[in-house]
Amino acid sequence: MLSQVSNLSFKSFFFFQVFLCYTSLMRKDFFTQSSKKKIGQAIHAYYREFGRDLPWRRDPSFYPVWISEIMAQQTRMEVVVSYHQNFMEALPTIQDLADVQEEVLLKLWEGLGYYNRARNLKKAAQEIVYIRKEVPKSYEELLSLPGVGPYTAAAIASIVYGQAYVALDGNLSRIFSRLLAYDGDIGKAQAKEDLTSFGQEIMGPDPSAFNQGLMDIGSKICLPKDRALCPSCPLKAYCLAYQEGSVAKYPVKAPKKERKLVERTIFILVKNGALALKKRPDQGLLRGQWELPGVDSYLDLEDAKALLLERDLPFSSIKKGPSSKHLFSHIEWRMESYLVQVRDLPFAREDDVLQYFSQEDLDQTIALPSAFKVFVQEWRQENERI
């Protein structure tokens, strides 16, 4: 009897999943060729009238568009605009990017996070300049560059070369899911295939205007959850989720995994006004970057003093510093700190991994991850008080 119930439950679940898939596909087919064409026309019209004035749209050639698309990953557009301008002024050509020193590159990237994006830009520039000897001009060539995935390749191919590729990012996935009232998990391969296929069907003759128009609609109108400004949307007449009153339900996503929590104690070590930094390992989180020294545990004042003396760092004063937290994609740092005035020693140890930098060094040449921003600010304020 139990076996029969179990089989029945499995069959019910199976048929329910088939029903969901079938329903999504039927809703995709709900749109006629005429309505698909009108959706594409509405997107193009919106872009022509309300498209954002962005620097790389004024010069939609490969280099500025490529840099903008890499910067825009995990970054708000208003931040990208200022960084893009500084980057292009410092490195105006792909040759400049290929030859730039890593410290200079990371300083230009400082505050954007995900520093592997910058390293991959340089690798790709070196490949373009010294191996291929020409910029990539097709989706396949773009996709083979370091740091370029399907979305970025599609965005560049469509914007720069007018090639008919759907740049399916979070904005487009959200818009398409709502238009279709699509019940599939957008993180799954099948959903990406379905939504991309729908995008191809409504694209129209101008892939560049199509993708960039949707990017703008997604960033200004078709906002996540219950923040969507549906009355202002040029696509509301075609949106099944809007008609059903279920916009906030879409897109459907699997719950995110909880971040691993790491408790840390950071030492703001100051010697003659200079700040102590060390390099992180060449592998793992924030690989090869400068950081403030610390340990992966909370230390009370007495334990902090003992650790400093154990590591041959005699000090003239130590006091509690600020607390902070920083979110990475899979890890959360929760940090306490101590501000320490280190006594100047008459000798330097050969095994000392710490280096001391002035405010000028940090302003002009040394790039620090934003995780340490609060502690660097405390050091600057301490220098002003002294």
Rank of each mutant, 00 (worst) to 15 (best):
V80R: 01
S24A: 15
D216V: 04
Y298A: 10
A191L: 08
E103D: 13
F267W: 03
Q126R: 11
K122V: 14
Q243C: 06
P92T: 06
V80G: 03
T265P: 00
Q163D: 08
E258C: 00
L229N: 15
G288H: 13
I331N: 04
Y338H: 06
A191R: 01
Q190N: 13
K253R: 10
Q95D: 12
I67P: 02
V342N: 04
W66I: 04
L229R: 15
P369N: 09
V129R: 09
A125M: 14
F62H: 07
Q101D: 13
S35D: 15
G213P: 11
S208A: 15
E110I: 05
A157L: 03
D352P: 02
A45I: 08
S177Y: 08
M215D: 12
G213D: 00
A209K: 07
P136F: 07
P314M: 01
Q4G: 07
S82G: 04
I39T: 12
K107D: 02
A45R: 13
E378M: 06
F16W: 11
K37W: 12
Q200L: 11
A306E: 09
R264E: 01
A371Q: 12
F328R: 03
L223W: 15
E141M: 04
K38M: 14
E310H: 06
S24M: 14
D59H: 08
K123I: 03
Y338M: 09
L2Y: 09
Q341K: 08
M77C: 08
L261F: 00
E49N: 10
V342G: 05
L327S: 08
L309P: 04
S68E: 13
K249T: 11
V295L: 08
M77E: 10
N272V: 00
W66N: 06
P255H: 01
I156Y: 02
Q95R: 11
L223R: 08
Q341P: 00
F198W: 10
D29M: 15
Y338N: 09
D96M: 02
W333K: 04
S323W: 05
P255D: 02
F15G: 05
V374A: 15
A45C: 09
I221K: 04
R287Y: 10
Q41G: 13
F347Q: 12
A304K: 04
E310W: 00
L307V: 01
A42V: 07
Q126K: 14
P322L: 01
I159C: 01
S323D: 11
I156H: 01
T196R: 11
R57V: 10
G213F: 03
V160C: 01
Q17F: 12
N116A: 14
P207H: 05
H84N: 03
K122P: 12
E291G: 09
L223K: 06
P314R: 02
N171T: 11
G284R: 02
I39D: 02
F315Q: 01
R178H: 12
H330D: 05
W109Y: 11
K37Q: 15
V79T: 14
K225Y: 15
